[in-house]
């Protein structure tokens, strides 16, 4: 029992269940299947991005550029589809993922070559990508009437469960989560990310190719962001080149809430899934709880502070023991 409680994921799950019970007591409408499904739907895009941020944080870094990469991948792909009159699903998603991946490689290159703090590099690359996208490609929204029909149809795919409809995109998110989980825990490359986050010097002495580790980490974060960006567009039936501003805070909050440590070396996919669900639930339940939506930012800020304080406390205990 004690060992079970020592696992962060178990603690997070318990807090989550407690929060759900409390919210449900205040407003039973919370337990409506439609409300729960709508919450799960909102997990998808943030969650896929969070998988990338989790990987970056395990490596001891931080990434604030992924919303810019996501919006670039989404907008470039959709504009290209509109321009070429192309209808399809698989090829566009591959393209968006590749755009994100290339941008992620750019991050890795700067971080590795210039030995610079990832936060500062990604602040810079975010500004570069967003500035170029809006300055050169444009700022006009691709609306539902011009959006490729294939993407809209794909984003609308649902299955009916108990009278409410659940988006199929949720299963794509979960499949990606399983893949990232297997990658992090079952492959040598994945383990090298934990090793690098724990202590870069030791990781390279043990024989890991740390250069490869860094490139894989940021490329993965970029690729997931690119994929999530186009998925967002296909689920919301429009492509807004100014989307995702400030989203990095929500995603980082979710990952931290899921028990990842910014010192690196710690964090799990299961924790992140729980963290994402918790964040989305808290933000959405403010309305159900009768709290004005203007308090959302305060709530997210408090979540980041409390969650980081708790993980910092936990990590210090571990180090002391």
């Amino acid at each position: 029992m004690k060992r079970l409680l020592a696992r962060s994921e178990v603690v997070i799950a318990l807090i989550l269940i407690l929060a759900m019970i409390i919210i449900g007591l205040i407003n039973p409408a919370f337990w409506n299947l439609e409300n729960l499904f709508s919450l799960l739907r909102q997990n998808v895009v943030i969650g896929i991005m969070a998988l990338g941020v989790l990987t970056v944080m395990i490596s001891g870094g931080i990434d604030v550029s992924f919303p810019a990469f996501a919006v670039a991948a989404m907008y470039l792909t959709v504009r290209a589809m509109v321009g070429l009159g192309y209808e399809g699903v698989i090829l566009p998603f591959i393209a968006a993922t590749l755009i994100g991946l290339l941008l992620g490689l750019m991050n890795a290159f700067f971080i590795r070559t210039f030995k610079m703090i990832p936060l500062i590099v990604t602040l810079g690359t975010a500004s570069i990508v967003r500035g170029l996208l809006n300055g050169v490609v444009g700022t006009s929204i691709v609306n539902i009437d011009r959006m490729p029909q294939s993407l809209i149809a794909f984003g609308r795919t649902v299955i009916n469960l108990g009278g409410a409809s659940l988006t199929v995109m949720l299963f794509i998110y979960l499949a990606l989560a399983i893949l990232v989980h297997l990658f992090l825990t079952r492959t040598m490359l994945g383990r090298s990310i934990y090793a690098y986050g724990g202590d870069p010097e030791s990781a390279s002495r043990v024989g890991f190719d740390t250069r490869k580790t860094i490139f894989v980490v940021y490329a993965l974060a970029g690729a997931l962001a690119g994929f999530a960006g186009l998925l967002h567009s296909s689920m919301s039936w429009l492509a807004n080149p100014r989307d995702f501003i400030g989203l990095e805070l929500d995603v980082i909050a979710a990952v931290v809430l899921g028990g990842a440590s910014i010192f690196g070396g710690r964090g799990s996919v299961i924790g992140t899934l729980l963290g994402v669900f918790m964040l989305v639930m808290v933000k959405n339940s403010l309305i159900i709880l009768g709290i004005e939506t203007t308090w959302q930012l305060v709530a997210v800020g408090l979540i980041i502070i409390v969650a980081t304080a708790l993980t910092a406390l936990r990590d210090r205990k571990k180090l002391g023991a």
């Binding site: 500035g131 170029l132 996208l133 300055g135 050169v136």
Partner: peptide, 14 residues
């Protein structure tokens, strides 16, 4: 445009 100026700030930082 302001967007291009944002780009220049970012590029300058890098």
């Amino acid at each position: 445009s302001n967007h291009l100026i944002d780009f220049i700030w970012g590029a300058f930082l890098i």
